[in-house]
Design a protein around this nucleic acid. Structure first.
Lengths: 172, 172
DNA sequence: ATTGAAAGTTCCAAAGT
DNA sequence: ACTTTGGAACTTTCAAT
């Protein structure tokens, strides 16, 4: 079917990404950069651009995927077009930093509808939750029902996102 | 070559994504969800799963890409494996909110090495910049050389990211 | 717009050099 | 590590609905 799709990455990974089969070299980095720019490039095309025979290139890509250097390949969508025009970043602060409530929250974040990603951070805030909503009402409901109301959360500050500017993300 | 790759999305888009050729329906949403989960699914496979003939499905996917509902398909990489183990979110506050300096910053963000994405937000902070660095020294250099030092930036607060938790991102 | 069928292409695995 | 090869899978096109 193509370079493709190991089993879709399950979400809460138990924090172990230490299968590192082979040292990453510049060729691997070049391959990864190409696939960051366009995740649907065919193996043949990637091979051509990095100057590698197809079978060798395919082997490297497979290894990169199996070792989770390439964690996944996903479509980036326009949430506005899909009926969720409101985008926001919600900073959560836990009261007392109970390890337990933060852990249990961590496990449930991904299931909250509208959550694009969450970041567990050091500093004044504990989590940054990146969300979309169909309306400001929807955003309020999302925040109040699924974030503020979480056990242990002491404070939530919602910042509307005016614009998301994608980085070039060149690996170097 | 596949469903693939219109010209790679150029970065600072002038904020107009209003070519909406056809109304998005539930089938489109289903297709998009599949491609969010696995951006390398073949057209044949997507067609099978949503119960559409291949040619129809291919047409829809093409339309979704041309109208930028699907903005792009990109590999998600493990920055740790690629030699940038430090991940951080930097909150920037501009002094005086000079429109000009914020605009010019906006245009230059994507070129800063290590920047994954930046968010222009409403609220106390003006930008959240999501970055990776090869070391804490590298992070300091990145922040001091490219963020704090930007004209108009009054304050920068750096939060180390312990963990990124991807959301399910179901469109609904 | 959507469809099925057929043509043309690309991909993958397994062989050998 | 590279090349070739055969067969399977994929995308695309087109006439018709």
């Amino acid at each position: 079917m193509s370079l493709q799709s190991g089993p879709p990455r399950q979400n809460p990974r138990p924090r172990e990404s230490f299968v590192r089969p082979r040292q990453i070299d510049d060729l691997d980095r070049a391959i990864v950069e190409l696939l960051i720019a366009d995740g649907r490039l065919s193996n043949a095309e990637v091979a051509r651009r990095v100057g590698l025979p197809e079978s060798t290139c395919a082997g490297r890509i497979r290894a990169l995927r199996e070792s989770d250097v390439i964690a996944g390949i996903h479509a980036d969508v326009d949430h506005v077009a899909l009926g969720r025009p409101i985008e926001a970043m919600v900073a959560l602060r836990f009261a007392g930093h109970t390890r337990g409530s933060m852990d249990s929250f961590r496990e449930r974040i991904a299931a909250i509808p509208g959550v694009i990603a969450a970041y567990h951070v050091a500093g004044a805030d504990d989590f940054l939750v990146h969300v979309t909503a169909p309306s400001s009402d929807g955003l309020r409901d999302l925040v109040l029902d699924h974030l503020t109301s979480v056990e242990g959360v002491g404070h939530a500050q919602t910042s509307i996102v005016f614009e998301r500017i994608p980085g070039a993300r060149p690996v170097g």
